[in-house]
């Protein structure tokens, strides 16, 4: 009986190793394939020229600008609301019916598919508020989409701040506001930053919601009210309609590099925090 148990354990362990290595291999295969095919097509001209003949020729400058503008709008709008919500949940209240409803809403928002955000953004921002297909509509839709991420990561970061920080601030006569701004927030800021970086990545990667709200116009967006096409949408159209495989690969490679940079930035700060915390703990 025990022998069978050992055999089963060995088989299970082998299967688990196999599954994990397979996932890792698959991920590297996907990324390396896109980078190998895409990187050679990326040059200065590709980054700075606007798309010509529907993206068959030219570069992707206008889609890069569009992506950055939509992301910037989303982050600027979502940060005060997201962090404000987190501060309220973590510092100003105890668990009650209101916090439960807020938490439920944030969790529910996190699960809503991006295409439903697209529908909402289209009917609310594009049509009802009459903003049209524009950078602003796309950015506001993305702001709604990343709100739950920012709330959750900020709240976790604030809750992780040791209570002694608050106690010291209060004992020195600090008000609640001073305590939050001067004692709690500096210590939580790196965790908050991590959530913001993840949200930036999400904005860069999003396709469905942005396509329905920012449009797919190839022109250079000159204002917040101009329609735009983000890189992910551009890649989708190039690949699905077979307009230019070369430019599709190059755009995908650039997207992967951007996401990689965003992830590395988020992780580097996080590991710095844990290193710093452990130093503090030793003292």
């Amino acid at each position: 009986m025990k022998k069978i148990g050992h055999m089963g354990g060995k088989i299970a362990k082998t299967l688990i190793w196999f599954a994990a290595l397979m996932v890792l291999a698959l991920l590297f295969f996907i990324i390396i394939h896109i980078l190998v095919k895409g990187l050679p097509a990326i040059d200065w001209r590709f980054l700075t020229d606007i798309p010509r003949s529907m993206g068959r020729e030219g570069g992707i400058a206008s889609t890069i600008v569009g992506t950055l503008m939509v992301t910037a709008v989303a982050i600027v709008i979502a940060i005060p609301f997201g962090i404000g919500s987190a501060v309220y949940l973590a510092e100003y209240t105890h668990e009650n019916i209101v916090t439960r409803v807020i938490r439920f809403s944030a969790e529910a928002l996190a699960g809503i598919p991006s295409i439903v955000y697209g529908l909402f953004g289209f009917i609310f921002f594009v049509i009802y508020l009459n903003l049209g297909w524009s950078v602003l509509s796309g950015g506001l839709t993305m702001a709604v989409m990343i709100l739950p991420t920012i709330i959750r990561t900020s709240e976790e970061a604030i809750l992780a701040v040791p209570n002694s920080y608050r106690e010291v601030s209060y004992s020195l006569g600090g008000t609640k506001w001073q305590t939050i701004v001067k004692a709690v927030f500096p210590s939580a800021s790196r965790g908050v930053f991590n959530g913001v970086m993840l949200s930036i990545g999400r904005c860069i990667a999003e396709t469905a919601a942005v396509m329905l709200t920012a449009g797919s116009s190839l022109g250079m967006p000159t204002s917040l009210f101009a329609p735009t096409r983000t890189m992910a949408v551009h890649f989708y159209i190039l690949a699905l309609e077979g307009i230019s495989m070369k430019n599709a690969y190059a755009t995908a490679a650039l997207l992967i590099i951007l996401i990689f940079i965003v992830n590395v930035a988020a992780n580097m700060l996080m590991s710095k925090i844990s290193a710093k915390e452990s130093v503090k703990a030793k003292r």
Binding site: F81, S85, Y88, S105, V116, F120
Partner: peptide
Amino acid sequence: LSGYVFFIFALSAISVLALITLFI
């Protein structure tokens, strides 16, 4: 005052969820 301000921010998730449900 600061409590009220944060409370208003904290209502954003609820109001957005309500708006999405309502409009769709």
